[in-house]
């Protein structure tokens, strides 16, 4: 009997979604291997956010399926969501609550009891060097710090999969660099699988894998160096732009 093979962190298979006359996703398929940082690169309107909405169970696909560590998001959403820590594109924090209260609320939503939640919150905030902000109201924090709080919140439940939907949107250069450093360090330390949607190529240049989404279709899928070689260019950015241009003309 062959040994059981662990399910990939994410399997997206033949996913399609249409809004009226707009085909947001068209037969999209890719996988996120366990423990990898996978970048989902795409220009604005490529379908990244729609894909994330389906991945997180907020939207339902017209066709195809998504599974997270073997749990189907449509038929077993609770189990699939248990694996995830999510940072949404739009900042999602209760501005009237403190940092600690926001994280406590999230921990409660995930069923963490008080003592365990307090430990996880302290660890998450400490890990991102914002442990002293637990009692601060979110309204009083800068955009970059709020993003760190959101990342800390996503980590509170020790997720096996981290979903990041353009997490650096609205951040200055330094905050963006901090975010990149923190995510890659976390993935390396904890073995967390990461799916990172962005259109900033530099953020994900060190990713293990890159999926290029263009006009709702997978335009390329491979390692950063593999994509550059296939496009006969030196950088991932040049490869991405080349793929986007090629697809625009097709």
């Amino acid at each position: 009997m062959p040994p059981a093979v662990a399910a990939p962190a994410v399997v997206v298979a033949n996913l399609s979604k249409r809004y009226g006359r707009i085909q947001a996703l068209d037969d999209v398929s890719f996988t996120v291997p366990v423990g990898s940082v996978t970048a989902l690169l795409g220009l604005n309107g490529a379908g990244k956010t729609t894909l994330f909405q389906i991945l997180t169970g907020l939207f339902v696909a017209d066709a195809g399926r998504v599974s997270v560590f073997g749990d189907d998001i449509a038929s077993a959403p609770v189990r699939a969501l248990e694996h995830m820590g999510i940072v949404f594109q739009q900042p999602v924090l209760d501005l009237d609550l403190t940092v600690g209260q926001n994280l406590g609320f999230h921990a409660g939503l995930h069923g963490l009891r008080r003592r365990r939640a307090a430990d996880a919150i302290a660890e998450g905030l400490g890990r991102l060097r914002i442990g002293d902000l637990a009692g601060k109201r979110v309204r009083d924090l800068s955009g970059g710090t709020r993003r760190k709080v959101e990342l800390a919140r996503a980590l509170v439940t020790s997720p096996r999969l981290l979903l990041l939907d353009e997490p650096s949107q609205g951040l200055d250069t330094r905050s963006r660099a901090d975010l990149v450093t923190d995510v890659f360090a976390l993935a390396a330390e904890r073995g967390t699988s990461v799916l990172w949607a962005t259109h900033h190529v530099a953020e994900v240049a060190s990713a293990d894998r890159v999926v290029v989404l263009h006009r709702g279709r997978v335009a390329a899928d491979g390692t950063p160096s593999g994509l550059s070689e296939a496009q006969n260019v030196d950088t991932l950015e040049a490869a991405f732009l080349g793929i986007a241009r090629r697809d625009a003309m097709a």
Partner: peptide
């Protein structure tokens, strides 16, 4: 509108 509903709806709870 503030996005908090997404946090609620993506909680691993029915």
């Amino acid at each position: 509108e503030a996005g908090m509903l997404r946090l609620l709806l993506t909680a691993p709870t029915p």
